[in-house]
Design a protein around this nucleic acid. Structure first.
Lengths: 211, 211
DNA sequence: GACGAATGGATAGCGGTACTCTCCGCTATC
DNA sequence: GATAGCGGAGAGTACCGCTATCCATTCGTC
């Protein structure tokens, strides 16, 4: 297919597709003439992935490029590849780090028996410390006490994630599934947590019959 | 205190504070002269809240304004106020809605015995449908099967959230705690989920001893 | 009470991001 | 052979969150 049909099938405007091509988010099509190129289903698939990362995953174009580069890495173990990808989909955040919050994180790791060595300087750790710093800055220094119950709930969720991913065939599918599952999972979790809050709020607060 | 000290204590540059004042994110200080205003701890607290919402909660300035407006509402039941605030901190997202994904959401509600009536057109429902649409568009139409295990894990988390909030005194503290807890909780959950993934990935994939 | 720094207030400008537009010569299709 | 679409490249746009500049006034302190 040519770019017009790629656009129609994906819902992405042609100029945007051209932009993604320029930015290296989509591989160039196969040239059949100096100004005719052919795109296949793989391009369509990749394009939809890019949109999902941008729209739902809220990744910047640069971050998407990193993710795709990690996905396309050929010569690494699965574990390394997963690590690469995870770094790429975990934006660190910009705020100041309160040393007390960093200590909270380390204490949490110790409590959970994490080998901290290879984790403490990752984006994920930074994310966590940033969030706890923000909590402290607005006077919620007891927020850290939620880490353990959160982990308890997230173990269930992570297990479901792993089971879901395990149904996939090739290692490429696994890595891509991890990207999609992590980012779309984030969005789903955000929404469902809010639903759970609303449900509880409705149950707990029977304040005033009606108005 | 005056603006300079407010800046020093919060770490926010003076021009930014002025900007927030203009945008209505901070109430004006009490004027003691035509060009001197006095700010108190309440301003400082509000400023830090704004920064947390912007930095960690990733809210736009407009969304922050909505949240603050909801927080400052005086004449509503707690339940209504919580609902208002929840809408304000739940950005809908922009993608197309796949009708099949919408059906997935409704089926989920039915399964969970939600009274859908007052929920189906909320931002949160839209968030969920957007995420599931994205999943479908990249070929993960079985992603919806994760909804139930996610809810199971999130019930634990939501319970912890409620317990945490319940320690607070005034209803104002409750509502503010809900904002902070929801947004910072989102960030924390994101991070901890990734840690859980990494942990599981390390456990499951003992592929190759070392390199 | 003089003087430099800081203040409140208003308007304009800046830097980054994600597109979007325009133009070109060429090509598929009718 | 007309017309629509194409690949490619550079410039332009819209929005967002600040940041810079200016002004008259006032604070701090000497």
């Amino acid at each position: 297919m040519r770019v017009g049909e790629l656009s129609k099938r994906s819902g992405v405007p042609v100029p945007t597709i051209k932009y993604y091509l320029r930015e290296g988010l989509l591989p160039a099509g196969v040239l059949t003439s100096p100004n005719q190129a052919h795109y296949d289903d793989e391009h369509l698939r990749r394009l939809r992935l890019v949109r999902a990362l941008v729209d739902v995953g809220d990744l910047s174009i640069a971050a998407v490029r990193d993710v795709l580069a990690a996905l396309d890495t050929r010569d690494d173990t699965l574990h390394k590849k997963l690590g690469l990808v995870q770094e790429a989909i975990s934006q660190p955040g910009t705020g100041e780090l309160d040393p007390l919050a960093v200590e909270d994180v380390l204490a949490f790791f110790r409590r959970q028996g994490e080998e901290c060595a290879d984790v403490t300087d990752s984006n994920v750790t930074h994310m966590l410390a940033t969030a706890l710093s923000a909590a402290r800055s607005v006077g919620h220094d007891h927020f850290r006490e939620l880490l353990d119950p959160y982990l308890e709930g997230l173990k269930i969720i992570a297990q479901a994630d792993v089971d879901y991913i395990a149904t996939r065939g090739s290692t490429d599918d696994i890595v891509e599934g991890m990207v999609v599952g992590t980012l779309i999972g984030d969005a789903v979790i955000k929404a469902v947590r809010r639903l759970a809050h609303a449900q509880v709020s409705r149950k707990v607060l029977s304040d005033g019959p009606e108005d």
